[in-house]
Design a protein around this nucleic acid. Sequence first.
DNA 1: TTTTTTCTAAATCTTTAGATTTAGATATAT
DNA 2: ATATATCTAAATCTAAAGATTTAGAAAAAA
Lengths: 235, 235
Amino acid sequence: MRRLDFQRKTRIIVVDDNYDHASGIRELINLENEYEVIANAGNANVAISLIKKYQPDIVLMDMNMPDVDGITAISKISELNLETKIIVLTAYDDPDLIFRAMKLGAKGYILKTMASHQLIHALDEVSQGKIYLPNVLCSRFFEYFQNFEKNQQNAGYEDENNLLNDLTNREEEVLSLLTQGVTYKGVAQKLFISETTVKTHVNNIFQKLQVNDRTQAVLYAINKGFLNRQKAKIA
Amino acid sequence: MRRLDFQRKTRIIVVDDNYDHASGIRELINLENEYEVIANAGNANVAISLIKKYQPDIVLMDMNMPDVDGITAISKISELNLETKIIVLTAYDDPDLIFRAMKLGAKGYILKTMASHQLIHALDEVSQGKIYLPNVLCSRFFEYFQNFEKNQQNAGYEDENNLLNDLTNREEEVLSLLTQGVTYKGVAQKLFISETTVKTHVNNIFQKLQVNDRTQAVLYAINKGFLNRQKAKIA
DNA sequence: TTTTTTCTAAATCTTTAGATTTAGATATAT
DNA sequence: ATATATCTAAATCTAAAGATTTAGAAAAAA
């Protein structure tokens, strides 16, 4: 399934602060006649300017770099909105790293411990527009992904520091309306209570959430996953 | 790599509205001596009550069902917080479906068109706690995932209906402070302008966003991805 | 050059919002 | 039986928010 277009080789930039390692990769790749390493960067900032200048097809990015970390580098590169595809090279199968890299649009992820033909295989897949993620790393990704989603949904639920837990049922109802931008009068009408009662509730809410006004209360609620809670209760 | 624990078979519930298809799967699985289909559900509601009652190890869930759709069913099952693992069976490789199913915690995803030994393989992997997603579907997932993330980051950027686009620079600065719960006086101090000027800006913001007060303005801003915008500008 | 936009500001006024205190009615728990 | 928590409500007050009009200065666009 190698590309048969010999008119132009797939151009690669290698980003690695270890010069020996980078050279090894360069030689390995240059053995293949459809790929060529056109440049080599020792740190993220050099990498970014080189990528801007040469707009390579693929960037092979090492993740253990000084100064700017790999994730930040990937983020900056993807902000350039180029056609350049990023393949991450790393020593560890840290699920958080895999997750964040893929989130930022990395097209491949390989461990340094993997056999060298894996690297070429990754280049083949990615240059064809596919995503290359070995099964082991794919599993890691999904474990993390599913945990992440679960935590998103339950954000702040069993959190000891979540002041929302101190609210009474009625106060939650009132806060819910506040997060919809309803006024005192509006709340009073919707809950069939007097406006002064609403004020009492709102004041209690402010004290419990340790805020001074409704905007801050709403912001606190949103940050602590109050909206998710409400959804859960409705459903 | 099959499990060697013959003391208890892995218990499976099949959810499929097509009886013939369900029977086929049942027979196929019962050929394997480490698995047994303990029940069969023709729709989602029956499935959920059966799952509550029997707490199976694995649920094989067909996605083309009447009434309650498969995604809703998965959502409800995962809310039960059981150890039950869900494998999705479907005819189409719709990336949105794959994405949502995996997001909700499905442990496997197979196409009906795939060979039957794939199903058994999926059962093996999932019963061992792994995630089973064939390469083709994995690619689909990541394409969708990365697009999704990109859209999340640019939420509302080039949206014609996004009233935030009508704001001037100064108004954006003011709104940014409002989304932090700052008062008129506070905004005036931070921007080195008079309080009345702040009021003018805020009133203009309200008109442009078609809202009546700061809470609604803040909510509008958050929903339309204003916070992401600000982050992008700072960075 | 003239027009338009943006940022600035003040004055005036009405309406909410928020703080604080007090208190009756219910229900729950000790 | 007596605290304790919750929901209700009113009165009173101050501070903040919001609406509306008018207008000068500077910059950018026509």
